[in-house]
Design a protein around this nucleic acid. Structure first.
Lengths: 146, 146
DNA sequence: CTTGACCTTCCCATGATGGCAAGCCCCATA
DNA sequence: TATGGGGCTTGCCATCATGGGAAGGTCAAG
């Protein structure tokens, strides 16, 4: 299986497969005589695992830990659960921060007539220094979706 | 006012003030004889506006639009509201994606004993190809907080 | 005049991803 | 057999907003 087929089979782009290899998340695969990477079912399995974890918002660092546990047949599942619960904590903190922003903005938008007039409570709020920084001054999207 | 004092007064780091200038978000300020940037109350006001908007999760691009409206005394506040509501839509989509992840993970964590044994439903789920990509395969934190 | 705090510019790193370009390889079809 | 198209390789650049650090100039207090 060449990289393109592996990408289709696992749902991980060829670009990212190379990147995961480069950063050590996955081991360098065999190469064909021409230098093509070749993947077997086991590698596809690993890539699928990685993609699932990415879909659940795990960072590559967390995925490295999860992969190590996955491969360790003696793992205590306590470890897995610990990682997951820490990640849930992260996600919930992010949700809270985003929810705080949303609430504030919704409130401001409701107070704004949305017509042709220039006086706008939203702008008034933005120019006031008091706009709460929230826990830790959190920024915008930077992603396609998250 | 030098850049350090402006940073303290506005809550925007000196580093970011220079960056905002470089990218055209703010105009280059006057310089002292020695080449030091000097800021007056009006600039501080603008920086404070920017910081408030960042705290509410607006991207620099959105902030540029908001700044233009802020400065336009003839602005129709409809425009402001439109930007804010689009941003709320973004935030809500992100919250939904994060919430979906959290729900799935919470579910999996509840199904995992968290003891010494190796069989873990979390890992089992990750290796299955079905782990729903969510709307658009959304990833992790990448921020300090959001 | 020295010292320390401040300023300047320039370069690099982050995290995960996509895009592009130059060049090699493989297979099927003419 | 030749050719074309698609796939593979590496390498570099961009994203977005932010921080870190180095090398060197400036300023004010002691």
């Amino acid at each position: 299986m060449n990289i393109g087929e592996a990408a289709r089979a696992s749902g991980v782009s060829a670009k990212m497969i190379r990147y995961y290899e480069e950063t050590g998340l996955i081991a360098p695969p065999e190469r064909s005589a021409a230098g093509y990477r070749t993947y077997g079912p086991s590698e596809i399995h690993t890539l699928t695992f990685i993609r699932s974890a990415r879909n659940l918002g795990f960072s590559m660092e967390e995925i490295a830990e999860l992969l190590a546990l996955w491969r360790d047949r003696q793992r205590p599942r306590r470890e897995v659960k610990r990682i997951v619960e820490a990640h849930i904590g992260d996600l919930e903190a992010r949700i809270r921060a985003l929810q705080d922003m949303t609430d504030t903005l919704r409130h401001l938008a409701n107070a704004c007539g949305g017509d042709d007039r220039p006086d706008c409570p939203i702008l008034k709020r933005l120019e006031a220094p008091g706009a709460a920084p929230l826990p830790d001054a959190p920024p915008p999207s930077r992603f396609g979706a998250i």
